[in-house]
Design a protein around this nucleic acid. Sequence first.
DNA 1: GTGTCGGCCGTCTGCCGACAA
DNA 2: TTGTCGGCAGACGGCCGACAC
Lengths: 396, 396
Amino acid sequence: MKLSACLNQQSPEGGEKSCLNSELWHACAGPLVSLPSVGSHVVYFPQGHSEQVAVSTNKEVDAEMPNYQSLPAQLICQLHNVTMHADMETDEVYAQMTLQPLNAQEQKEISFHPADLGAASKQPTIYFCKTLTASDTSTHGGFSVPRRAAEKVFPPLDFSQQPPAQELVARDLHNNEWKFRHIFRGQPKRHLLTTGWSVFVSAKRLVAGDSVLFIWNDKNQLLLGIRRANRPQTVMPSSVLSSDSMHHGLFAAAAHAAATYSRYTIFYNPRASPSEFVIPLAKYIKAVHHTRVSVGMRFRMLFETEESSVRRYMGTITGISDSDPARWLNSHWRSVKVGWDESTAGERQPRVSLWEIEPLTTFPMYPSPFPLRLKRPWPSGLPSYSGMKADEMGLN
Amino acid sequence: MKLSACLNQQSPEGGEKSCLNSELWHACAGPLVSLPSVGSHVVYFPQGHSEQVAVSTNKEVDAEMPNYQSLPAQLICQLHNVTMHADMETDEVYAQMTLQPLNAQEQKEISFHPADLGAASKQPTIYFCKTLTASDTSTHGGFSVPRRAAEKVFPPLDFSQQPPAQELVARDLHNNEWKFRHIFRGQPKRHLLTTGWSVFVSAKRLVAGDSVLFIWNDKNQLLLGIRRANRPQTVMPSSVLSSDSMHHGLFAAAAHAAATYSRYTIFYNPRASPSEFVIPLAKYIKAVHHTRVSVGMRFRMLFETEESSVRRYMGTITGISDSDPARWLNSHWRSVKVGWDESTAGERQPRVSLWEIEPLTTFPMYPSPFPLRLKRPWPSGLPSYSGMKADEMGLN
DNA sequence: GTGTCGGCCGTCTGCCGACAA
DNA sequence: TTGTCGGCAGACGGCCGACAC
């Protein structure tokens, strides 16, 4: 992996490179991924971060790993910076965030803004995503564009020509330019990308099963991104640091930042990570303190389909407990054990976090939604909820 | 980077994959690289390890990085395991080592073996290395084999045929098989690799300036490896962990191992690292305690040439001091400031370590070389030399 | 001794509509 | 509506000796 393009969420003019519309990044990341807004308060979960590192290094955290006593299970931070990136080699999207743990005084002064709830980012409206077929990736031919897709996102063809054709110019996440010949021909007629397509396929090393997506943005620019199929064993030990040292690094850096209230930097890989581990504080508060859940309760949760849209799966809460009591006591990370109505080969996780689900047979405990204010602030000196008991949080 | 092939130094039958002769690994690593032997005692320098991480992530250690008080500047360890690897994507060689810091009792019982001195590994005798030309990597033709090289390492051709030709089968670091047509033709006659060569070039993504090397080992097998040219900006931020967290990880993992005398794992990238940071203890002792150096003294030091051989450069010692007194007090890592006779654009480092150089106008202080025994063992409880004063070590 | 080139042939790329799912 | 195929023309891959440094 090499240096990556930069997409700064807030200050496009500040970046080292010219910055693309973040629509493309979000389209590649998927409909469920949202990034907290700069300046807002968030909750950071070392445990979730560790899960991402475990997936990336293909190695679980070692049982011998010491407890970082000074590191609470969740850190309340201010989010100073968010930049969107894409891997130079694979185009895999990821985000870099700069977090700063709040000290006791800052925690007392927290006030909430509705915008901090972090709704899933709106997917661009004028776009399409197609999974590549064997013919699409073969050297024998070009790319067959689904009719509705071509009519929706490509500029209209001049049908007085025979055959109707035009040159398309599209930019990828790295702002590289790709040119394609777009032609409408064949019997029956269909939209095709011919000249230029195979160069793109080989440059991006696309294979059948990968997806390509086109966006027509509000500046009349054509953007294109890719999403690789979930190939098993795409993991890559970095050969720089052992996975054990990586986990040490994650915990030590977070512990140091928590102890000194200083900034630190993390990477979030939306398509690698099993769950988001930087959550808007308001979303966390709402889910943990203002929603009543109990064993046996029904809920639904959003998942991404293979066609890049969302669907809800239903399930039942079967238990509420610490997912790793030895290491992370009183953590809300994956504290909810669930069973799924449709059990497709255990594809969905058996444990989820409160803010990931929508409980059904309940309603919010507060009548007026905003602004919120906590009755009982977190224990002074401990920038976390780790000292709270379950009954204080309405879990029982 | 993906999973890598395994070359176990000691137990070829124990590896998960069939293991190749380590000759190829050492040939790719270069003539100056040696690996300490399994079971021996070594000195590990977190500072040197940090340098490697800084090079790999292209980012220096942060000035805000806290001091890891419990981590001495050098750790005396037993080397439990050494495995040789090669990156699946780039074929870059690296080694994985398992180290275990010695406790005070173990340090007292150390005895030295001459074999532990860690002489540079013998390069294979029957091999050649060629830097690829534009013609070699072009699709227009094959690979032009230098005459002496072909006669030395390839099986002899049957010159009764016209033209003389044969099929060569060579295996790379991952034990993949590559087939080439070896032919002797043209006017004037020359050795060429034709059919099969371009597949190899494109699979390994070789460009003009990269090197390829062939070995004819003692089992009558043909092996081949590659060495990429030092292209600037080959660095790759991992997008898994920030460089700050990487440095934290390195120090925290080492500090934890030092505190508990437990094993930990490191990676050594010989072609990325500016210096070896795991040194045979005997070599360290000899250089630090049994060699007298002083400012103004002449010395010579080995360097690798572009043609993969070694040559000596001469220099003068200009100072002896801690290279990073704020972080690593009384460390011998790069404690010697030097000036070079041939100052080719500051290519060579201004600071070296004692065990890297050969002082000239001096001779060893001990009459009989081995076995050695220290008069004054290191301070009990501190598994390092960090408490020693310069005058105790004969530096002044 | 070896790097690069022109010449030449063969394979594969890549554009086309046919056809079927 | 769109995935795959046969047909075909042209580009490029790749093997050869010529030639120069």
